[in-house]
């Protein structure tokens, strides 16, 4: 029966798409779990290093590091962490919107902007819209190491050292829950040491070799670990956003298939009814 051939082809094609989105949903779900584990695993380091920096702020170092000093803002740096791939809902779009909003405010004040793009989508985005991209890294995969970031972070830290930028921010998606990812803009430099509780006694570390070198190393690692955390958090956000987006796509495909099947059955029934009535009227005519 030739009836509804187009509809059946269409159903097949939607079914194939649904298979793909379902598979992607499941892959994203398992990757999300792993990304969340990595996120949790990277927390102790940042926590410990933050403690050390807090101790430093309480101690009285003979040397005050530039990373801890606020200065007049003439130019700012932004590290924008995005995903490498799309098909993850509005994740990257929301992130870029937040970033652009913040960039615009600086621009209005006449402050220059340098951008460091992490992730394929960020570099593609800034290539398209323009912007002074000074460093770029992408295709870091699902399990990036801190070694993947050292180079790019260094570009920005060096710029800060040389006074080319006076503030450094990182923009990424915070993983709130599977359903909610929030674009975040955090200040990396100068480091905002919290000095809430005041220790009465004064002491300082012994530094080996020199306070300056040790502090530079420590603060560099601190910034790297923050960017790394932003990156893993963004990956967890990406996977959960993809999972949700693909679930929605699979559901939509299911609805479409139902509708098409209904249309197909109606057409088939109509054809059968027509045939019967033709036979009946034919028989009546004889």
């Amino acid at each position: 029966m030739a009836v509804g051939k187009e509809i059946r082809t269409k159903v097949k094609s939607v079914q194939n798409t649904q298979k793909i989105t379902r598979a992607m949903e499941m892959v994203a779900a398992s990757k999300m779990r792993k990304a969340q584990e990595r996120m949790a695993a990277s927390r102790p380091y940042a926590q410990k290093i933050r403690n050390v920096i807090k101790h430093l702020a309480h101690a009285h170092p003979e040397y005050k590091h530039t990373y801890l000093q606020d200065r007049e803002v003439k130019r700012v740096g932004y590290i924008v962490v995005s995903s490498d791939r799309g098909l993850c809902g509005g994740l990257n779009a929301n992130l870029f919107r937040a970033a652009i909003g913040s960039l615009k405010q600086w621009d209005a004040k006449g402050v220059g902007i340098d951008i460091c793009a992490v992730g394929g989508k960020a570099s593609a985005f800034f290539k398209r819209v323009g912007g002074n991209v000074v460093a770029e890294t992408s295709h870091l995969g699902d399990a990036p190491g801190i070694s993947d970031l050292i180079g790019t972070v260094k570009v920005m830290l060096d710029a800060f050292d040389k006074g080319e930028i006076d503030r450094l921010y990182v923009v990424y998606n915070e993983f709130v829950s599977t359903m909610v990812q929030d674009p975040q803009i955090e200040q990396l430099l100068p480091i905002q040491a919290d000095t809430e509780d005041d220790y009465s006694h004064q002491w300082d570390y012994l530094y080996e070799p020199e306070a300056k070198e040790v502090l530079t190393d420590l603060l560099t690692r601190f910034v790297e670990s923050l960017v790394y955390q932003a990156l893993v958090e963004n990956i967890a956000s990406e996977q959960s956003a993809r999972m949700v987006a693909m679930k929605a796509a699979s559901d939509n495909a299911g609805n479409l298939i139902d509708e098409l099947n209904l249309a197909y059955n109606k057409a088939r029934q109509a054809a059968i009814t027509q045939e019967i009535s033709e036979i009946v009227s034919g028989a009546a005519a004889v």
Binding site: H55, Y205, L206, E208, P209, D217
Partner: peptide, 19 residues
Amino acid sequence: PGVMGDLGILPRHAPLLTR
């Protein structure tokens, strides 16, 4: 393995920060 030589640390060591 500290940069200035190997370190052996016992409890109650003075505060120290090293690479």
